Amino acid sequence: MTLTVNDSLSIGNLNLKNRLIMAPLQQYMGTPDAFAVDHHIEHYGRRARHVGLVILESTAVSANGRLWKNDIGIFTDQHVKPLMKITATIHAHQTPVFIQLSHGGRKSSPDVTNSLVAPSAIAFDDYYGIPEPLSLAGIERIIEEYRLAAKRSIEAGFDGIEIHAAHGFLIHQFLSPLSNTRSDAYGGSSENRARFLKEVLMAIREEVGSDYPVIVRISATDYCEGGLTPEEWARMLKPLESELDAIHVSSGGLLPIQPSDVYTAYQLPHAAAIKQHFKIPVIAVGKIYTRSLANRILEDQLADGIAIGRPLLEDPDYAERLLIS
């Protein structure tokens, strides 16, 4: 049977009507206190009609972990109600929606962050400055913030959670040896560097149970020698596969380095390399903008789902045309 982007896809116990996923892209429209607004309701509702899944933009689990001064958060109970309006609007189109939970670590916005933290005292750049290395108590506190965010995510009506372990934010900082030089149980070996992700994942699982979809977004490469590679990611994620429902493969962001060439489907080789090691679905993202290309990727079993972002920002009906053209 020929596989196409129109075919259904199961992520855990959730069945998607097609394999097209709205990737998480920031709207920069949150209030100073990180509340979602009417813009988010209209934006996501308008684009939810035809995709199989919506993944909400990065949503902060901590007041000190916001990525931008105008992002949105879920770090208080008061944040739940505005998010409920977004999920209700998306559900009106019979489309499920995941929330992407994040903490910026050393890349948290200086405009709204009182305490810049990271696994090690290594700055991303001069703009952000040198972070304070997290103590064990600090690590435990952030893990608890993820657990509470997961609890609120269910209350807000989300159908699943994406753990943001990509683009140089806190979990990614723990995972990469370029940003993690710790000598305790959270640094050194691949197993130790993956410990923070594992404990965040298990805290979320404790709150949501085994049947609730939880996926992870990763940066497959740091674009720098000595950084993470798909093979290293496979070693770190394989022990966690039974607790995950999909892997969403992006790249970069740990360092102020850009890929040398951003071409059509430029991140696909990383997704394909990751997929070789896992039975759970792998989602490819990055300039996959035509139906023919998406179908070829699926048919060749290089990935199981296709995420698109920027075309949907520019044209809310883009997914409809991709599915029928």
Score class of each variant (00 low, 15 high):
1 M>A: 11
4 T>C: 13
8 S>T: 15
13 N>L: 06
15 N>H: 04
23 A>H: 09
25 L>E: 12
26 Q>L: 06
30 G>F: 07
34 A>T: 01
38 D>S: 12
39 H>V: 12
39 H>C: 09
41 I>T: 12
43 H>P: 00
52 G>Y: 11
54 V>W: 12
54 V>I: 15
63 A>D: 08
65 G>F: 07
66 R>S: 09
68 W>K: 14
71 D>M: 11
72 I>C: 12
73 G>S: 14
82 P>I: 12
104 G>K: 11
109 S>T: 11
111 D>A: 13
111 D>F: 09
114 N>L: 09
116 L>P: 03
117 V>E: 10
119 P>M: 00
123 A>D: 03
125 D>A: 06
128 Y>Q: 06
130 I>S: 00
131 P>Q: 10
132 E>K: 14
135 S>F: 02
135 S>V: 07
143 I>A: 14
157 G>N: 11
158 F>N: 07
159 D>K: 10
163 I>E: 04
163 I>R: 08
165 A>Q: 09
165 A>P: 07
168 G>S: 08
168 G>M: 08
173 Q>I: 10
192 N>C: 01
195 R>P: 00
202 M>R: 13
208 V>C: 15
209 G>F: 15
210 S>C: 11
210 S>R: 14
214 V>R: 08
214 V>P: 02
222 D>I: 04
225 E>I: 04
230 P>D: 03
231 E>A: 10
231 E>G: 03
234 A>H: 05
242 S>M: 14
242 S>C: 11
249 V>W: 00
253 G>F: 00
254 L>V: 00
255 L>K: 03
262 V>P: 00
272 A>T: 07
274 I>T: 04
279 K>Y: 01
291 R>E: 02
293 L>V: 05
295 N>G: 01
296 R>I: 06
299 E>Y: 08
301 Q>N: 13
303 A>R: 13
305 G>R: 12
307 A>T: 02
308 I>W: 03
311 P>T: 05
316 P>L: 05
318 Y>L: 06
